[in-house]
């Protein structure tokens, strides 16, 4: 079992091996469909992204509302495949780790290898459990998107499985 802390260092990313369990602590960004579409448009127009994406982690998730007295509501992963048309552009801008569920497209696998990134799997359909690993949650951008806005989370001991490593090895074959 491996542990990773943010800020990410090159060695940690390159050492990740497909299929192994990795325990993540530190800062990650939440973004899903509509936020990806917007970030993609921003990149296409040559404008600045709402946060510095270099060396960062994106978690594909749209949490429920936060119940009173809690840090965050239920917050499990959403299907990664839907972000795939926008992902290579984000990897090119410096995104290094992605967290989600399910397989990725050929293009994304290729881009993961090219930009020496990796893709991690979160316990799918376990949003209540995952909320226990979140220590802080803060809105970052696109608040008009409601549950699809970009949030910055601080997580502690978030258990993940390496789905695709920087060499392009894929758990789904």
């Amino acid at each position: 079992m491996k542990t990773i802390k943010t800020p990410l260092n090159e060695k940690d990313i390159l050492n990740l091996k497909m299929g192994e369990v990795v325990i993540l602590s530190g800062e990650i960004y939440i973004a899903r469909d509509q936020a990806h579409k917007r970030m993609f448009e921003v990149i296409k127009k040559g404008k600045k992204l709402p946060f510095d994406i270099r060396n960062q982690i994106i978690y594909y998730c749209g949490p429920t509302k936060t119940p009173k007295g809690k840090i965050i509501g239920s917050c499990g992963p959403t299907t990664s495949l839907r972000m795939d048309e926008f992902t290579p552009a984000l990897l090119k801008k410096g995104l290094r780790l992605m967290i989600g569920k399910g397989d990725r497209s050929k293009e994304v696998k290729k881009a993961i290898r090219k930009f020496r990134a990796a893709y991690l799997l979160a316990p799918a359909g376990c949003g209540a459990l995952i909320s226990k690993y979140v220590r802080k949650a803060k809105p970052v951008a696109y608040s008009d998107l409601g549950p699809e806005q970009i949030l910055k989370l601080e997580v502690k001991d978030f258990p993940l499985i390496v789905g695709i490593d920087s060499k392009g090895r894929n758990i789904y074959g």
Binding site: C61, T64, P67, G73, S74, G76, G125, C126, G127, S131
Partner: peptide
């Protein structure tokens, strides 16, 4: 904890 089983 009366949390949603899944965020979706």
């Amino acid at each position: 904890e009366k949390l949603a089983i899944c965020q979706d």
